[in-house]
Design a protein around this nucleic acid. Structure first.
Lengths: 201, 201
DNA sequence: GTCTATACTCTGATAGAC
DNA sequence: GTCTATCAGAGTATAGAC
């Protein structure tokens, strides 16, 4: 009988994710990942060949979980307000489970923008859909006049920032670890609230 | 006669800043900084002793430019709405002149959180002031109920994000370089508008 | 102050026994 | 599949000539 995550490969993926979360790609050490997985360093290379391939495996797993759900939501036939509400909830959940993603994406962007865009295109997620819907609802007077380019950037920015800038936000507002967790939990409703209050007529 | 940046020490600081911005602390290589500065690797250590000290020197310079104006604004005796309006304007202007700051800070956070917090404290900037003012104006019914921790993070997030994620935003919305410049110019009013529409009663 | 050469350390990756 | 031992390379830092 096999429990989920019992096999070595999965143990490695879990450990790698945990270490990448805390240390980032550059800061992460193969030794630390091995220790955390309770196995030997050589075994990491046996399973994943290199640090880069290991990271890609971790990243792919996240993308495989996030993109389809995102695609499904963006294509759903519901009003923009509902869509925003669900989007924020889903996006924050994904960030909560994988807080290292934004930093990685941002670092990637600065040196290699194409690779990320390739991922998005491959996933079939099409942000233009949302843009069209926003323009449509604005013209029908369902929400106030606002450019989609600003509204979408605002939403994503508010979701991502507390994860990227966690240490500084936490310290500035003098929060303990658990308090910050609660703060992050709060943000789902707060962001949705903040946005809807701004765009409703 | 000495031009600014002519001396070696300054050249190193400029080069180091550029490399730290792109690669982060862990990813940055002393060799690359030396190359960029057009000098030898050993000279880096002659001037700054270690990579860490070099990093701190770079950070000091950035902080010295950013913080004083911020401090002045935060302590001004004006309403929160006006303060937000000025803050966004000032912050975006600083970002426009130094678009490297956000990536710099974000990369810093992941590897070296303490150094940044040290500088905030040293600068005398006290975010608690703003927090207090927000709580005060909420209780006096001047703005709707909202936690300062959320409002402040929202504002800063919306300012920073388009600079950090420029390549991806630009590509997703299919903008040319000049269009994106115009977009960034727009954001000052858009963000202020977005926030005030959300928090006004 | 600036250089070349080099010591030392850390870490990703491999070889090979079991 | 898993381990121990070790290599090769990169990177920080230093020594010492000029």
């Amino acid at each position: 009988m096999t429990l989920a995550g019992e096999n070595t490969e999965n143990q490695i993926l879990i450990a790698a994710r945990d270490v990448f979360i805390i240390k980032g790609y550059e800061g992460a050490r193969m030794q630390e990942i091995a220790d955390q997985a309770g196995i030997n360093k050589a075994l990491l290379h046996y399973y994943f060949r290199s640090k880069e391939k290991l990271f890609e495996a971790v990243f792919s797993e996240v993308a495989a979980n996030l993109f389809p759900a995102m695609k499904h939501l963006l294509e759903a036939e519901i009003g923009i307000k509902e869509k925003i509400t669900f989007f924020v909830k889903m996006y924050l959940k994904a960030l909560h489970e994988n807080p290292f993603i934004p930093a990685f994406v941002i670092n990637t962007l600065n040196s290699n923008p194409e690779s990320f865009l390739k991922y998005i295109k491959k996933s079939g997620v099409n942000p233009i859909l949302l843009q069209t819907q926003i323009e449509d609802e604005v013209s029908r007077g369902l929400i106030r006049t606002i450019k989609a380019e600003h509204l979408l950037v605002n939403i994503i920015a508010m979701c991502i920032f507390p994860f990227v800038a966690r240490p500084i936000v936490q310290t500035i507002f003098n929060m303990e670890h658990d308090e910050y967790q609660a703060y992050l939990e709060d943000r789902g409703n707060e962001i949705t609230d903040f946005v809807l209050k701004s765009i409703c007529i």
